[in-house]
Design a protein around this nucleic acid. Structure first.
Length: 273
DNA sequence: AGACCCCTGGAC
DNA sequence: GTCCAGGGGTCT
């Protein structure tokens, strides 16, 4: 599932092949997943040059040359990739942007949870989800993180998954960060000791950095912009490892629903204090 | 805080 | 055939 490291990997992979290219034609098979009127969408995008790519939380942006942006949210199974123009890309393709060098950017999404939206830069803050995003994890100091936990009675796992609290973390990286910090996912945020809060902050940044360096985690669907699998799934300690032995202590990894999500943790390394 | 919804396909 | 995966929206 594309979370921060996967979206960052895609944004970096697309940058060298998209920057400077102009959109010369496009198609919207099926018409799903586009947040705006299709004709309007089409009339705005043809002729636009792509200036850069960037990521905010789990959103991937293409910056266009008239101070507008194309925003992709890949949700569960969304995928962005490049192909020679005209080549059949496969099933579940919802948007094709043909570029001026006989390549095509495609947006594929088996489960159709993903979205694509077109925004004027100054109108972006009118998108409620974007406007309410919390800080980027790498821009968050340990001190600020600790103070954000104060007064939050909810469970720490729910908070990590809340994009308004901190942007970009999903189920995989929440579980892996909590394991590394030795914090139980159901711990109320406001009872975390200063020491544990600091460990968790360190763990989040380390896990995300390592996952980006590994090109993300490929459980099933995720691929980089050039179609490669990531490798961070090989470094998982808890995610998807229910009833397998803990890599640290050998206890069996447990699973439980926390914040409506399957959560994997080591009952011995991550005691509920 | 939890339930349901969106959607498809893999596991059983 | 049933269950499950889960990001975000919405409703209770």
């Amino acid at each position: 599932m594309p979370e921060l490291p996967e979206v960052e990997t895609i944004a970096r992979g697309l940058r060298p092949v998209l920057v400077g290219r102009t959109i010369i034609s496009m198609s919207i098979p099926g018409g799903h997943l586009i947040r705006q009127n299709q004709k309007l969408f089409q009339s705005k995008l043809i002729g636009r040059r792509i200036l850069d790519t960037h990521r905010r939380g789990k959103i991937l942006f293409l910056e266009l040359d008239d101070d507008t942006l194309l925003a992709f949210h890949l949700r569960m199974t969304g995928r962005l990739g490049m192909a020679p123009t005209g080549r059949t890309v496969g099933k579940h393709v919802h948007l094709l942007l043909d570029l001026d060098n006989d390549t095509t950017l495609f947006f594929q999404d088996q489960r159709k949870f993903g979205t694509c939206g077109y925004y004027k830069a100054e109108e972006l803050k009118a998108w409620p989800f974007y406007a309410s995003l919390g800080p980027e994890p790498f821009a968050l100091s340990a001190r600020d993180f600790a103070s954000m936990l104060k007064g939050r009675k909810g469970r720490i796992k729910a908070l990590l998954l809340d994009q308004r609290f901190v942007a970009g973390i999903g189920n995989i990286y929440a579980d892996e960060s909590l394991f590394r910090a030795r914090v139980h996912p159901a711990t109320p945020a406001n009872v975390l000791s200063p020491n544990k809060a600091r460990r968790l902050h360190t763990a989040i940044q380390a896990v995300l950095h390592e996952a980006i360096a590994a090109g993300g985690s490929s459980i099933r669907d995720y691929r980089t912009a050039s179609g490669l699998v990531g490798s961070f799934q090989n470094a998982f300690h808890v995610y998807g490892r229910g009833s397998q032995p803990c890599t640290r202590c050998g206890s069996l990894i447990q699973t439980a629903k926390v914040a409506g999500r399957t959560s994997s943790f080591c009952p011995r390394c991550q005691p509920l204090s």
